[in-house]
Design a protein around this nucleic acid. Structure first.
Lengths: 133, 133
DNA sequence: AATCTATATTCTTTAATCGGAATATACAGA
DNA sequence: TCTGTATATTCCGATTAAAGAATATAGATT
């Protein structure tokens, strides 16, 4: 991947915030919405942008889409270096620290999913026992 | 400086090439023109872009403008980290390697400047003995 | 099948960016 | 002062990017 394409992915505030959260682990869209407080379209489109350029991958789990960074083994040297750099830099800037804090103390619940289903990669858990009457 | 602003400076190919060269040391505009093979306006405008955002500084030496990165002591942690990252990453990509090579074997001459004047920070030297009749 | 929920896509408008032509400025030399 | 050289700026058109409203899709639930 060309270096400039990586920077093009990083040159938008929303995308930086998304990547900052993904550096903590896989997440589903609803988490981003709750942490960033931005409308669904915006989140979804920026995730799509990152996806088509290979900076994130997505897998479906039920209704939810789980986004995650590519595994270390599949990162180009440039991507690996820049993600590491972002990891460090973001730790020093207020917006990103706030987002990380918000994520850390967030209810990992995504929404109603079947009781007893294993917690997903994104940390999703049933919101509550969904009535199975 | 906000992180996103740094990435905005890095998200253009021309600007990346300029910064890649500046990582080798101070340079004047004519060097960029010769190495990149791009028109003067383009070079000048991207340097201006970087300047207004504090990624480079410029000082005039006679007719020439010498551009350089801010001294290490004046770089924010984010800028320092990203310049280091760029330094490493650029070493692996063809465009940047070619530019560095072209710079390395380039005639450091800028153009006719007064004989005997000290070679500038940019490595400029007199093109030839200018007649002082 | 009908509905609900989560997420993605399309469409449109607005705003930002980039490049080039022409022009302006700043300094040097005669 | 006049001219030449190096660089910057202004103006303009073209392209791209971003945001939001509305709509579409995919899977789950009933």
């Amino acid at each position: 991947m060309r270096l400039v394409q990586i920077y093009q992915c990083l040159c938008d505030e929303t995308r930086l915030r998304l990547l900052n959260l993904l550096l903590q682990g896989p997440l589903c869209v609803c988490h981003f919405q709750r942490v960033l407080g931005e409308p669904q379209v915006k989140i979804s489109k920026h995730l799509g942008y990152l996806r088509t350029r290979g900076l994130v991958r997505a897998t479906r789990r039920g209704n939810w889409m789980i986004y995650e960074l590519p595994p270390a083994s599949k990162r180009s040297p440039e991507l690996a270096a820049n993600l590491a750099c972002l990891q460090d830099c973001a730790a020093e800037q207020a917006v990103f620290r706030r987002d990380r804090a918000r994520l850390a103390k967030m209810d990992p619940t995504c929404g109603p999913i079947p009781v007893g289903e294993a917690v997903g990669d994104c940390g999703c858990a049933p919101r509550k026992a969904v009535s199975k009457k």
